[in-house]
Amino acid sequence: MFEQRLIQLPFGDIVHSLSGYTVVLFAFAVMFVVLAIISLPEKPVDIVFGTDGYYTKEIPVDLMKFQRFMAIACGIATIGAITTGDVFNFTLFAAFIGILNVGIVAAVKNKPVLDAAFSYGLVIMMATVPLFAGAAIIGATCGTLSIGELMKAGIHAPIVAKLFLLVGVLGEGMAPFYIGKAEITRSPGAPYILMIHVSSLLLFLRAVEIFLMV
């Protein structure tokens, strides 16, 4: 399932390709990009406690445009992370997804949301260290960064490099920080905020494939 390459798109040393596994992830990501393009923002309704009154929040047009741009870019970065065939390129796409996620969240003007976005921003800044360190250890000990070459030669990457990559991906995609996620996503901005979940899930699934193969 992992080994078979269906499509290949070479960019010099970095060869993008799709296997039977990643083609599913690719289709999923494309679907959510299309959803982000066509959908309109959701308007949250707040009910005044103890009365019958309620009010709807208007989403400003510039906020909507910005979040939509970030969501579409995040989907495209996710597609890049899914298709790339190079460990270092994968880490760069992961960093890209992290910064776009911060952008989606930070656009909302709300103190608790901004607090959570700041904490998450610190985590994504830290996560670049294990990501680059993991890729560099693979490069130094295996002599190549290409996932295809590593597979062909049957080289196993050192366990510490895999751990570094894993924790880096978790930091960029904030997948384990579901507690933090609940804080962050308590904000207007649906459906664009969905892209955070989609991108972190797909990034993690792609990372699993890389760990199983190298």
């Binding site: 911060v102 901004l114 700041f118 921003g121 800044m125």
Partner: peptide, 8 residues
Amino acid sequence: EIMVISEL
């Protein structure tokens, strides 16, 4: 990243 986080 430091640019974004400091503005944030």
